[in-house]
Amino acid sequence: MKITDLLFQLVQNTVLLVAAPLLPGWISQCRAWLQNRNGAGVLQPYRMLLKLFHKDAVLADQASVLFRVMPYVLFSCMWLAVALVPVLVTGLPLAPAVDVIGLVGIFALARMFISLAAMDVGTAFGSMGARREMLVGFLAEPALLMVLFTASTISHSTSLTTIVETLAQQHFVLYPSMTFAAVAFVMVLLAENARIPVDNPATHLELTMIHEAMILEYSARHLALVEWAGALKMLAYMTLGIALFVPYGIAAPGDWSALPLAVVLLVLKLALAGAGLALIETLSAKMRIFRVPEFMGTAFLFAVLGLLTHFLLEAA
């Protein structure tokens, strides 16, 4: 392990951490444009975070340590997830730490903490949100795993580095199975990041909330961290999607000359993905909560179909 690699990892993590709120800002800006509004600008999440960090935190009397620790755990989990996905260069020092299954585990850990903390104070909406989150989560997780397994069977490894290297840095091959996996992944992304049609991030109706219901009791710096973690989670999912389905441009280890192109391509892909997400959100309406299992079941089916088509069409 070289010192430059280590330095690059540190710089990359910091830059991604600071730049993450740009992503939700960009998405809501796109949504505003699609709805013929001017929008608040891509910097709005930063203003929000600044405001929240300057406020005094209010805690419920019955709040336990768990409630206060949760934002920090959530934030670190999501930052770690962002750091583990190959974004610009493969083979960074952190990459061997965890494979795709571990990555899903990190998301699961964050989900467990946020659900427990939501139930901790004992408000009705908190525990309702926690239960719904677990419902969505337990359906989304197998679908995500099947998507990742499809990529793993193609590259014969569960390590994200190997997957990206197989898909991007060898000669161009069309994988039919990845079409199914991509559809399933987009559905999981929508569900896991609390977007329309599964959840509405901008809702004020407590009865329809999932993610928002869980963080109703949070304020000030805690809420800021939760919001920031949300932005990081979105970034982690989008970069994971890019790494799996359009990894072209991610540089090989030690190939510093390819780095500027990789940065430009990454920004371009993220901007496109954000605009696409805004389009999906504008075109669809929020589902009833009881439709969600159907939606996630479809995602799981597509992921399984991807695996099946891999064995039929691609197995040598």
Binding site: H171, V173, L174, S177, F180, F302, E314
Partner: peptide, 21 residues
């Protein structure tokens, strides 16, 4: 996997799109 020519890959892609539809 590498021995399938590009046209073959395209056809496989179409096949999976048909299944998707």
């Amino acid at each position: 996997m590498t021995h399938i020519p590009f046209t073959g890959q395209l056809i496989n892609m179409c096949a999976s799109l048909l299944l998707l539809i």
